[in-house]
Design a protein around this nucleic acid. Structure first.
Lengths: 242, 242
DNA sequence: TGCACTTCTGGTCATAGCGACACTAAGATA
DNA sequence: TATCTTAGTGTCGCTATGACCAGAAGTGCA
């Protein structure tokens, strides 16, 4: 398993079509999950970063990514990136933006950036010292324009959670309304009224109640299941699916 | 003035960094305006297309575009495209999506697509036979995946008009509420109640009333002016400005 | 001049959605 | 058994919105 910190890297890549003179295309991915630090009241948004091993910004943290292979679709390249970092398929994957300022790197690189969601319970325990999960709101200074990229991805996440069902991409098959609410609260960083939240989410057709309950320290809560007929997000006429 | 129909073209370009073997980056732009065909009740969304002069899909209509210059920002390339086609600066310009399927062109091309708005009264009367304005809802079969691209751009336009102020990008400095309403009606393709529309738009701080009136065939209507302090659209942390 | 007609503009009314909040249900724990 | 905490229901008031009414202010024609 090879993990490359890219979006501009002089390091050669086995699948690279690098023509050193011209403009090269890289694909990077901002991978979000939720993580509960001990002692913390709320979970917080976290993402994996990769330590750069070679020249431009060597030693700094960067988004996982790699050069676009000449026979590889953009989505496929993003999925590959994600798999190389987390070993998983994303529960949600969407193109974020193409970054291509001339001066964003010593050589000319256009980075097609994706963002993705994966469920916290699926994160493999990587022992790789060069991959580390950071709190999205407490990042170090990153290589290239990656701080700006993460800011934009976070903005999109917080925005999109308001008008789509992407929150479900962070939960397992069955979940309680409290767990779903906690996802929203963690992303939006504010408390939501349990009663109103229930009313809102039950008003849609996105949830299917089950007959099972989660027994815990108090009154058991009904488990719900995500309605597979509804898309996580309206992508319009584009047919990109993770 | 050179107009190139791109997003994949074998034709060489003076500013191109074309390395024939690898992946090349093109920039195309979907340029929207409003146009009232005679006899038509409502204005409709129109966009300029360019007839391809060379091999892949020669003779077909395509989006205006060109190869990304190695010392040119993505936004700048889009603006250049737009200027070459319309001779104008856009009143709104935003990146749409990066299209990069392997099979979207005979050679490997990643197209960074922008979409833009320009005011109908500013459209230069081009005598170029290879540039023609089409109704967005009545397009011929276009080169490459450009039909799909236009569909997506239209979806974004119709979506965004609902929660941003981009409609102002299609009007002159001073306008009546009826004119502003007509922009919305044309984009959304449905009638809006004049009284309710007035209430909505006056509820925001985006409009500044003037003391001037537009005299027409009936009761004069007050002219309004767009409040320059409000952005046309919330781009989040990204600082792209046309 | 006066009347009809159209559009501009200000209002009402009923309804839907939502935030705030009170209250009941049900199990854990002491 | 009493108490605590979370699950879940219901209510109230505010706001936004769609439908619609009515007066204001012009033009055009008899």
């Amino acid at each position: 398993m090879t993990i490359t910190a890219t979006t501009t890297a002089h390091a050669s890549n086995a699948t690279s079509s690098a023509a050193p003179a011209g403009t090269r295309v890289a694909v990077s991915t901002v991978i979000f999950t939720l993580r509960r630090a001990e002692g913390q009241e709320r979970a917080s948004v976290a993402l994996p970063l990769v330590r750069r091993q070679s020249d431009p910004h060597e030693g700094q943290w960067a988004l996982p990514g790699g050069w676009l292979d000449i026979v590889e679709d953009l989505d496929a390249a993003a999925s590959r990136t994600l798999a190389e970092t987390t070993g998983l398929a994303p529960s949600y994957l969407e193109q974020l933006y193409a970054f291509g300022a001339v001066d964003r790197s010593p050589t000319r690189v256009v980075s097609i950036v994706y963002w993705a969601l994966i469920r916290p319970d699926e994160i493999a325990d990587t022992s790789d010292e060069n991959v580390r999960w950071f709190d999205a709101d407490d990042l170090p200074h990153l290589a290239f324009d990656h701080n700006e990229i993460v800011s934009y991805a976070l903005w999109r996440l917080r925005n999109k959670v308001g008008y789509s069902q992407i929150a479900h991409g962070l939960l397992a098959d069955e979940f309680t309304l409290a767990e779903l609410r906690e996802v929203y609260e963690s992303i939006l960083r504010r408390r939501l009224d349990p009663a109103n939240f229930r009313r809102q989410v039950e008003g849609t057709d996105t949830l299917l109640p089950t007959e099972r309950f989660r027994k815990g320290s108090h009154r058991p809560a009904r488990l719900y299941r995500f309605n597979q007929d509804v898309e996580l997000a309206d992508r319009g006429p584009l047919g990109v699916r993770p």
